[in-house]
Simulated scan of single mutants.
Amino acid sequence: MSTPRFLTLPSGVRRTFVETSRGRFAALEALPGSGVPERWPALLVPGFTGSKEDFLSVLQTLASAGRRVLAVDMRGQYETPAGTGPESYTRAELGADVAALAAVLGADDDVPVHLVGHSFGGLVTREAVLARTARVASFTLMSSGPGALTGPSAEKAVLLRDSIPQLGMEQIWTLALEPDAVNRGVPPKIVAFLKARTLGNCETGLMTMATELTTCPDRVDELAKFMAEEGLRTLVLYGEDDDVWDPRVQAAMAERLGAEKVVIPSAAHSPAVDAPETTAAALTDFWSLAERALR
């Protein structure tokens, strides 16, 4: 991979590409210390402007429980190749990509996959679940919601979408995103990574995903019905200070689903970044319970 490296990877985590029936996807892979997984694997899918690196702080801990764990860039994100046009970035198409990745991840041992979707990634992974195209051991909605994003965060997504044709991401980075990061005291090494990620994103993908994020229908009742029919264990996990998806909305979604719920203390929209050990422990506990119920 030719992209400059700005972030140090923990021991046991490596950069790789995953070849699927729907193309090639950039990933971070973590394996147990023995190198031999003893439990079912996990697939972690990031949000709208995120990437696989959003899970970097939890990968080693998650893998240490005996799992192969894969965090990916969705199509057109950072280091994954772009699609052929706007139609490549609908929730349905991105969900089909997730199903293809899950098929590869579970293929070696013919096992189901623990599926985690963060923010917009939650809406995408839900498509894969409801389409019944992914073999799923459990499903986690991390800092996600029942349907279209609303409020100030939705306004920001729409503003970004509408600004890209006029300015392009390079100018948006220089005029707005970089000054904001510097003013917030983000370390130079992280600013360099954020620049590479921002400019690595497909602009068409960002615009289409912004529309998908802000127009997505509420499919909670469909998911609840699927859970009841298939016995799928679902977890709603979010930070107590989430400033993108209102925690009250996420709590109500968990109740509608009849899902398990974990609120991560001292975390906002990115629990895996803000409280990695607590988040990893919650996921590991949930996955282990789901496996015991299915074996």
Rank of each mutant, 00 (worst) to 15 (best):
R256E: 08
V191M: 12
G122E: 11
A107F: 04
D162T: 09
D243G: 12
E255L: 07
E127T: 08
H118M: 02
S88T: 14
F55D: 03
C202Y: 04
A224C: 09
L31F: 06
P217V: 12
V111F: 00
G231L: 09
A103T: 06
T208D: 06
L237T: 01
A103V: 01
V244H: 08
P276A: 08
N183E: 15
M207S: 03
L237V: 02
V124W: 01
A224Y: 13
P265C: 14
A176V: 11
Q171F: 10
R219W: 03
F120C: 02
R161A: 13
G50N: 10
I190L: 14
Y78K: 09
L28T: 03
L257F: 08
V18Y: 00
S288L: 11
E203K: 07
L167C: 00
P32E: 07
E178T: 05
A154D: 08
A176L: 14
V262S: 06
D221M: 05
V45T: 07
E212F: 07
T204A: 11
A154N: 09
R22C: 05
D97A: 05
V249S: 15
E260R: 08
M207W: 03
G147Y: 07
F286V: 06
T214H: 05
Y78G: 07
D97W: 03
R256P: 06
C202E: 11
G76S: 11
W245S: 07
P217G: 08
W173L: 09
G23F: 09
A102E: 13
L31V: 11
T80W: 04
A99T: 05
E277W: 00
G239L: 11
T90R: 14
A275S: 15
A192L: 04
R132V: 12
G122D: 14
P32M: 05
M227K: 15
S119W: 00
L56E: 02
V129A: 00
P187D: 11
G66H: 12
V136K: 09
C202M: 02
E79Y: 07
A65V: 08
G35C: 08
L123G: 01
G106R: 14
P81T: 14
V104Q: 03
M227G: 11
G83N: 13
D108W: 00
L101G: 10
Y78P: 10
Q60I: 02
Q166Y: 04
A181I: 02
E229Y: 10
R5L: 12
E127M: 06
L257P: 09
A99D: 04
N183R: 14
K52W: 00
L160H: 05
P188D: 15
A272G: 15
E79H: 05
V13P: 13
V18P: 00
D110G: 12
K261M: 15
E212K: 08
D218P: 10
V191Y: 13
T174K: 13
V104G: 02
L70V: 15
V158G: 03
Y89P: 10
F139I: 02
R15C: 07
R292N: 02
I190E: 14
R67E: 04
G35E: 08
